[in-house]
Design a protein around this nucleic acid. Structure first.
Lengths: 225, 225
DNA sequence: TTATAAATTTAAGTAAGCTTAAAATAATTA
DNA sequence: TAATTATTTTAAGCTTACTTAAATTTATAA
């Protein structure tokens, strides 16, 4: 399939997952940098190929084949990210940018060789789950965002969700990384600010950050940091 | 530039180098798996972009910009080949097949990171020279094919030229590899057969093989094997 | 040298993946 | 609820990269 098609189904899949985002043509169009008209046009063409379900004025939905294609692209993307991070030491935002291209011209053969080389990883360097060869993906239930974390508890960062370099640069500069522990000091629910402590440093984070930092409960009695 | 354009100038460059092959539209078309009409069409379009010089019924020629583009694609191709061979242990024909795709969606940034990681190699695993970032390529004068090697002498294999798996499989099965020494036992010039000895094994090679195996004189007094 | 074959070019047409502009529908606000 | 605004869809058109078929030119062989 073409690069345009792969990106189209990939974005529908991702917006469908991220609750809060809809999958209407305009939303997909904005994400892909094309016009609404082009998105509607594409949706109709992909409906003929049984990748997308299209009903006028309704959100776009993937068929089973469309879902499989999206997960295949995401698998290739995240395996490349892992490879580029571990082997070529690219940064978190560099790996995304490069994988965004490589994902489209990687054969099934190479994909599986990459996977074996890396030891069949479950997650990429951002903590995003890597679908397996059959399109099964680990939808981790134990994780939630910092925004909904309880004040007074210690958590482990398991995922940094995004694709822009600013976010990742900010994280890097402030010791926010997958695997790091932090304590939620206070939740200012009124204006959605969160005060956390990482490595003895206080950070006041707004919602545009806390909704993208996923954490996990730390197993037991580990309340001090 | 598009993948089609990159492949077009790449093939012109390669056929122009390999003396014996012409660069008329039909030849290029066959190599790319498109019709003659499509090749003529493409040549005209690329002439407008100042990548190709087009004169009716004449062989196609690259402009300086076209040459630069071709060398850039070849650089990416051969760096990927080197990487896939060394790091993922793919075979000589597998690396070609995969690099044929990856070469088109590799940013300048990643290309240079790959190069640095590999220690700025001069040649890829087939012995083909890797153009540098400015498009300069090592046109090694000291090498020639087995077809024109003198009987009785010992040579070192420096390059295996080709892209089909059959050739590389044959080489692998018969200890024909870059860096290996061999002795030319006899040249049957009449029917272009060459008798060589590699690792105490005699091999009778025809011209379709000897024209693709490049060797180099072994420095001095090393006539025994 | 001329007839024939082969290659090249031109012309017309197609599919993918877009665009802009206008029409239709849905959502929002007064 | 009606009017306005925003979104979606349709329609027409463009570029890229092809195709087939016919016309032209070049190369080959009798």
């Amino acid at each position: 399939m073409s690069i345009a098609t792969e990106n189209f189904v990939k974005v529908i899949y991702q917006f469908d997952q991220n609750q809060g985002l809809d999958t209407k043509p305009g939303t997909i169009a904005k994400a892909l940098g094309i016009t609404n008209a082009a998105a509607t046009d594409m949706a109709k063409k992909l409906a003929l190929k049984e990748l997308v379900k299209f009903q006028k004025y309704q959100p776009l939905q993937l068929t089973e084949n469309g879902r499989k294609m999206a997960l295949s692209v995401i698998r290739r993307h995240r395996l490349w990210e892992t490879f580029l991070y571990r082997t070529l030491n690219l940064s978190l935002h560099e790996i995304h940018r490069e994988a965004e291209l490589l994902e489209h011209l990687t054969s099934d053969f190479l994909t599986e060789r990459l996977s074996v080389f890396l030891g069949s990883p479950d997650v990429d360097p951002h903590g995003d789950p890597i679908p397996d060869i059959n399109g099964r993906i680990n939808s981790d239930t134990g994780q939630f965002t910092l925004l909904s974390a309880k004040a007074g508890s210690v958590y482990k960062i398991v995922r940094l969700s995004g694709s822009d370099s600013e976010f990742f640069e900010f994280c890097e500069e402030n010791d926010i990384a997958v695997g790091v522990h932090l304590k939620v000091e206070k939740q200012y629910t009124g204006n959605e600010m969160t005060l956390v402590v990482i490595n003895d440093q206080k950070l006041l984070l707004n919602a545009s950050l806390t909704t993208r930092i996923f954490v996990e409960q730390v197993p037991n009695l580990k309340t001090e940091l």
